[in-house]
């Protein structure tokens, strides 16, 4: 299948490794990944902060860029949620019925990574290897906008070497909420504190989720505390293998180091970590 990757603005600019992992994973499964370079942002931040008019060009742009795609896949429940549940109604509200129709058509072929793997490709074992203790946070929009349900968990359970430990009160929001984290930073922090408490109680090495944004939030709290748990997007786990070309994502490499290492060197890093 020819898959158009919508990497999302956040992964593009701050977490490129999430896009890299998504690419490698889909390619490893035998699919062709294309990256329409004109893509930018789904406009969710604008919409959810009350700037629908400013979001309209982004909704329009998204439709222009992805209209021709066979299937659109994004490593984000939240952004896919916006495309699927907000774009068409926003276009309609602002008096663009033609765009609303186009957006509705796009919504039907835009998928979050895990639901794409399980529902469209019919895969629950992606052949990944990740020998770590992991806990999973079901992000709100994956859970309640997209209803991905246990699909990510089914994928994680089939990862060799991965020890999956349940997260207490998993379905409670982490407190990110986009600009909520800034506008209501005290409440956001209180929610984050509780989420981190639950994460730490699992004694997991890695907290994973399907949204880089929530992981940036929880991860930012965890590193502030020098906690013993780090965050990885689920694509990064699913892309990891024992070795193999185009396979692994670096297990031990931080965002800081990442830019400096070539993809081939990263595989070596992964192997070293896996063997330690």
């Amino acid at each position: 299948m020819r898959v158009a990757l919508f990497v999302t603005c956040l992964a593009d600019t701050l977490f490129p490794r999430v896009g890299q992992a998504t690419t490698r994973l889909l390619e490893r499964l035998g699919h062709e990944v294309v990256f329409p370079p004109a893509q930018t942002c789904c406009g969710q931040m604008h919409i959810n902060t009350g700037y629908q008019r400013q979001a309209l060009p982004l909704v329009q742009h998204f439709a222009d860029v992805f209209e021709a795609a066979e299937a659109i896949v994004a490593p984000s429940g939240s952004c896919v949620g916006s495309v699927r549940h907000q774009h068409a109604s926003l276009a309609r509200r602002l008096g663009h019925p033609r765009l609303a129709e186009r957006s509705a058509a796009l919504a039907a072929k835009t998928f979050e990574l895990c639901e794409f793997l399980v529902d469209v490709l019919g895969v629950t074992d992606v052949g990944a290897y990740f020998p770590h203790r992991v806990t999973y946070h079901p992000t709100c929009h994956s859970l309640r906008m997209l209803r991905v349900a246990d699909k990510p968990l089914r994928l994680l359970r089939n990862v060799r070497g991965l020890e999956l430990t349940p997260l207490p009160d998993a379905e409670q929001c982490c407190g990110f909420g986009g600009t909520f984290a800034l506008k209501n930073s005290d409440t956001s922090t209180a929610m984050l504190a509780d989420k981190m408490g639950h994460v730490l109680s699992t004694r997991a090495e890695v907290l994973t989720a399907g949204d880089a944004s929530c992981l940036m939030h929880i991860g930012g709290g965890l590193t502030r505390l020098s906690a013993g748990t780090r965050t990885l997007h689920i694509a990064e786990i699913l892309a990891s293998t024992e070795s193999g070309p185009g396979g692994a994502v670096p297990l031990a490499v931080t965002a800081e180091k990442q830019g400096r290492v070539a993809p081939s060197a990263r595989n070596a890093g992964a192997d070293r970590e896996a063997g330690s």
């Binding site: 593009d12 896009g19 990256f35 922090t189 930012g220 709290g221 965002a255």
Partner: peptide, 14 residues
């Protein structure tokens, strides 16, 4: 105030 922010990568995805 309560969270670290990620360092931007050397290279964007694109």
């Amino acid at each position: 105030a309560a969270r670290d922010a990620p360092s931007p990568p050397r290279q964007t995805f694109r």
